[in-house]
Amino acid sequence: MASIAVVGGTGAAGRAVVQEAAARGHEVRVLSRHAPDDDARVAGTTHHRVDLLGSDGAVVAALDAALAGTDAVVDASNGMSPGAMKVFTVGAGRLAEAARRAGTGRVVVLSIVNVDQGDYGYYRAKAEQERVLSSGGVPTTVVRATQFHEFLEIFLGRDGRLGRWARLGLLPVPRGVRFQPIALADVARALVDAAEGTPPAGGVRGPGPDATTVTIGGPEVLDARDMARAWRAAHGARRPVVGVPLPGPLGEFFRAGRNLVPDRRYGTLTYRDWLGSRA
């Protein structure tokens, strides 16, 4: 049994990692700004309130307490707004320093396939997170994954709430784009394997002197329109699927197929099976 700290352990990816690590019998510490709701707590885990963007003294004290005696740290933190994205830069630096002070055996960070090839602001911040953690003096494994099954719901809607376009009677999807969606549970499996020291095969030297980058993708490559049609059928909807342009660096990244790694199929749960599991 190992002691594994999961940073961002109350977010979607972090929760999946916590569940996977706990199911394997590890001692799991959940690090996040807010405690999980009672119904979201995983039995046998402990919570540590840590805000990576808090005041210097508070962050140092909180991280030192949370990481003391840990064998591995999995960073599944996230931030979408410009302010929150500092968790990938400022926060990553603080986490790297704390892991080194604690003598943690390894750091594992969740990232995105080919993130260093995109000019999208969020991707630039994630690439910097990889670099900062990999240069922190602790052996690091970067696990780059394709988009989660949930990604298209940014356009279509989620949790019973329709997206803006869907409320107008349409189901919009990025035009000319394919995805290789992967289940959160499959990503969590790869992250916990890496935390145990046995990451998926195919790793290459990472952005730091003592880092490895592993790339994983979903089991199939699908056109966004086909995914939207499957989503529509699973939800009993009749709205027409409409391709819309996705402008800017992110649209360019997707249309160029840089989000795909067909030679790195790792996930086992297909998109349609995932939809069926949530019906």
Rank of each mutant, 00 (worst) to 15 (best):
V74T: 05
V90Y: 01
V17M: 13
H34P: 00
P82E: 10
Q19R: 15
G44V: 13
R33W: 02
A65D: 11
G91D: 04
A16C: 10
M85V: 06
A99G: 12
L67P: 01
L95V: 05
L63A: 01
A58K: 09
R49W: 01
G54C: 09
L67Y: 06
F88K: 04
V18R: 05
S55H: 11
V50T: 04
D71C: 13
T45M: 13
N78M: 11
A102F: 09
R101N: 08
A92E: 08
N78W: 14
R41V: 15
A16K: 01
A98Q: 06
L63D: 03
T89H: 01
R41F: 08
L52A: 10
H47V: 09
G91S: 08
A76Q: 06
A35L: 12
A68G: 09
L67W: 01
G93Q: 09
A23D: 12
G103N: 07
L63C: 05
R29S: 06
V42Y: 09
L31C: 08
D39W: 13
A66V: 06
D37G: 13
G69T: 11
L67K: 05
Q19S: 12
A22K: 04
P82I: 10
H47R: 08
G79Y: 06
T70E: 14
G83S: 14
M80P: 00
D38C: 00
R101T: 03
R49T: 14
A58E: 15
V30I: 13
R100P: 09
A76P: 00
E97D: 15
A22Y: 03
R24D: 07
G103F: 07
T45Y: 11
V90F: 03
D38Q: 14
V74S: 05
R49F: 03
A62F: 02
T104K: 08
R101E: 04
A92T: 08
G93F: 05
